[in-house]
Nucleic acid binder design. Sequence first.
RNA 1: GCGAGCGUAGCUCAGUGGUAGAGCUUCACCUUGCCAAGGUGAAUGUCGAGGGUUCGAAUCCCUUCGCUCGCUCCA
Length: 512
Amino acid sequence: MKANDYHVTMDALVSLCKRRGFIFQTSEIYGGINGFWDYGPLGVELKRNIKSCWWKSMTQLREDIVGLDSSIIMHPRVWEASGHVGNFKDPMLDCRETKGRYRADQINVLKHKSDADALMFAFHEGASDPAAKKVQKVAKGNVEDYETVALLDIPLDQYGKLIGPDTNEPGTLTEPRAFNLMFKTYVGPVEESSNVAYLRPETAQGIFAQFGNVCSTVRNKVPFGIAQIGKAFRNEINPRNYTFRSREFEQMELEYFIKPGTDAEQHEYWVTERLNWYEKVGLPEGRMHRDIHEDDALAHYASACTDILYDFPFGTQELEGIAARGNFDLTQHQNTSGKKLEYRDPETNETFIPHVIEPSAGVDRIALALLCEAYREEWIPKGEGEVLTAEVGAKRAPEGYEARTVMRFAPCIAPYKVAVLPLVKNNEELVAKARGLFDQLTRRWKCFYDQTGAIGRRYRRQDEIGTPLCVTVDFETIEKDNCVTVRDRDSMEQVRMPIDELETYISNIVDF
RNA sequence: GCGAGCGUAGCUCAGUGGUAGAGCUUCACCUUGCCAAGGUGAAUGUCGAGGGUUCGAAUCCCUUCGCUCGCUCCA
């Protein structure tokens, strides 16, 4: 598959998504709310198709993975065990002068060893040179009289003497504030601290917490996986880029449990496996990237992590993270809950806590990537000639051409699979035949029936929502041969075939 | 959260103190016999929301919400 050579702007895409019913701002009539989005009639089909392609590839086309649907609110101790309560927050502070924002845990301070009233100099971890220069210039001091301490160890009442990383004035830094990224709620009608619970920030922990139950019910042998699709919630500091960073989002996560020591090969296997899947749903190699995390960027328990990225119009961004997490999660839950989460190898009788490979994908991000990749504007010659890729931002097609907007979804994820069109609507028999064909096809696929307007206009309308096939019933169909014309969205070419062969033909193109 | 810009019909936008507009879209009918934008008719807005100034506010002021960009973060 080739990458789309039309580089859509987000404005054009957002406009189409609203106009055609893919994505709406949530609660729009009340002014919307930052970081939450609704999927309209077409968007919901698109998303369901993404999820069902994933679910099929995980749980149906292979025997070693089973599914799970765990609750969104879990026991609060799950999030203590997972580390989210302790770690899933970033203390941040702002500089009033430069308007810079810093993560407090990444800032260190040069502090005078003996003079408690001396100015202090904050700097980014690992970049102490500018601060050292400021010691000489601003404080006229000697760097050797200063020591490095963490910003978080500086008492708040001393911030007046603190000079920020990008300024020479003291007292411009705000106090660090914790940004807890988990949504908090209360279980039961009374709001008491003992009732505090969290909306899950990831679906993965539901899998780990049910590891024991799943093992004892399905008798799977390592390596095996548990897959889950579901909503997750994060109080993102600043949601951005359309639906890309939403506060409520949907994940597709697999925990693939493996024998310790096979982590590297299994990790590599899943990276390849997932990239193949992206190709199948319409994200071509040319637009996809791997970001392999270096050792120093890994969580302490992880042995490898590779992000899968897509070239969005607003930058190359992550769709999925594939992490080799060792046995950190199961060990944590075993220790916190006091329940054994071990696996006994039926052949060797050996007992161990499996390691895990975690491919964790964002459904909404994949949907957005597919929309970006599918969007294309073309200039179609009125007579003979080549179809051109439209110039981005061009208002109209050049002389002799007309414009068409087409969503080139992979057929398996297109919201509608087939449009059934009577050539004209003022002939009863023709309309009845088309309507009957629609009733037949609609039992297997999401289909669209349209009899209004000129046939060409109807084709274009389907192009704009990405329907891969249009089936047209004409006079010959009813008078002569019981054949229909099938028109391809991308090439606009037509083939004529008997209605009897239609379902097989469609299935070959459209089914995942 | 901070800074900058923006918010008028489903979409794209015009309108800068005096009765809210255009194009496209949508709907109906006609026309149409395989690639849209022919004809006729119709629908659509508390000008993002709240408050203030004014005889009068889409327009000026304040507040707020949302969107975009930067700092920051992530599936």
